[in-house]
Amino acid sequence: MGELLGVAVLGAGHMGADHIRRIGRRVGGARVVAVADPDRPRAERATAGLDGVALHTEAEAALDTPGVDAVVIATPDTLHEAALLAALERRLPVLCEKPMTPDPAGALRVLAAETALGRRLIQIGFMRRYDPEYARLKEALDAGELGRPLMLHCVHRNVSAPPGFTSAMLISSSASHEIDAARWLLGQEITAVTALRPSPSTQAPGGLQDPQFLLFETAGGALVDVEIFVHCGVGYQVRCEVVGERGSARIGEEHGLRITGGAGARTEVPQDYVVRFADAYDRELRAWVDAVRDGRVTGPSAWDGYAATAVAEAGVRALGSGTRTPVELAPRPPLYG
């Protein structure tokens, strides 16, 4: 494909606008040709300064815009399944923000539709796989530098969560990145989840169980613990430590500007995931564009999206029941072998 890849972006909210900006100004080999969002003024703001972008209020109208070769889905989670199925009907490669669907049943319907085509068209936006620190940690594990992995310790903190954020969303939305990172780093499926309830922070809205502490068991016998705290009030902090039989490795210690002066030393903490993982988002989009232009789809698959959704669903059930909850996965189709 010699010409620029024509991309339709569905959703012009926080993530959609960020993807539009990156494709339009930072990622080579592609251009935004269509945007769909029911809030037209928001779509106009997101595309300001970009030429030749067709604006629509309906997703399918954007997919049918002349010149569209691929799709980025950044709509609300409940709209992902319909958008994915519409893209598959048109044989369009897709980069879909996580979660792939809000529930495992919807994810299985997407898997069935893609499997029926006999080729991968979907990549899920688990951008941590493209972060240089996570990539180096994966290399160390795959090379056996740490020996057999025994434990994975994860921290995920936000300054605050948007209005309407629920206790279940700490798992289904926030912890979904840790779910995928654990599966990818360890090369093992998660088989059971236990969710613990620390005393809620006084900074969290009433009724919100924040923070939470999750414990994942894996098929290879490793344990993964995850602290999720979405109203920490300090900054966006993501850390990960692998403990193996022959050593350990930790990432995510410092990512802000460190200032030293007469008042001492201080480090500025990123306030947003788009800032902390800015490089990872660029790398993710460049890799996706390059692969699609080459006739391929790589990166996290629809199976990865389904598995993450199934683990999150088990986690939400564990939070409600207070008991260890097994993860139930359907058989893995050969397409994702």
Rank of each mutant, 00 (worst) to 15 (best):
T101D: 08
A74L: 12
A219M: 03
A181F: 01
P198R: 07
G256F: 09
L88P: 10
G315D: 11
A307V: 06
G187L: 06
I122V: 15
V110T: 11
N158L: 11
Q271D: 00
L214E: 10
E245G: 04
F213G: 02
G52W: 06
R109W: 13
A182W: 03
A8W: 02
G2Y: 07
M1I: 12
T191C: 02
D64A: 15
P162G: 07
A70E: 13
E58T: 09
T101F: 02
G206R: 14
T115W: 06
L95T: 02
V7M: 12
V327E: 06
H14C: 04
G118T: 13
R128I: 00
H56F: 05
L4C: 01
A34G: 04
Y273N: 07
T166A: 07
R296K: 15
A143R: 13
P163A: 14
L55Q: 09
I171L: 05
G144W: 11
Q237C: 08
A48M: 08
A265L: 08
A48I: 08
L108D: 01
G206V: 10
R157N: 02
V274D: 11
R91V: 05
A54G: 05
F277H: 14
A59V: 13
A249P: 00
L88Y: 10
Y236F: 13
H19T: 10
L335F: 12
S248K: 14
S174R: 00
T267D: 07
P99G: 00
R90P: 08
A34V: 05
L141I: 15
R45N: 10
G106D: 08
L319E: 05
S160I: 00
P211C: 03
M169W: 04
A105R: 15
G49R: 04
P300S: 13
T166D: 01
V27M: 06
A182S: 14
G28W: 03
D103I: 01
I20C: 03
Q203W: 09
A143Y: 03
R258Q: 12
Q203K: 15
V27I: 15
F216E: 00
L329N: 02
E3M: 12
A8P: 01
D18M: 04
R31G: 01
H14T: 08
L4K: 13
G247P: 11
S160L: 01
I73P: 07
R293C: 11
F126R: 05
D77V: 15
L141G: 09
R31K: 15
P205N: 05
L85K: 10
W303H: 09
A265Q: 13
L208V: 08
A263P: 04
V243I: 15
A318N: 02
P66I: 10
P38F: 08
T191D: 02
S248V: 06
P38R: 12
V53M: 10
G252E: 02
I190S: 10
R293Y: 11
E114H: 07
R45L: 14
D69S: 13
E81P: 06
R40A: 11
E268W: 05
L319H: 00
E227R: 06
P162D: 05
R296T: 14
G305N: 01
A287R: 12
P66K: 04
A181D: 08
T323D: 04
M1D: 11
H255D: 09
P149C: 11
Y130S: 13
L63V: 07
R296A: 15
I259A: 00
V27W: 05
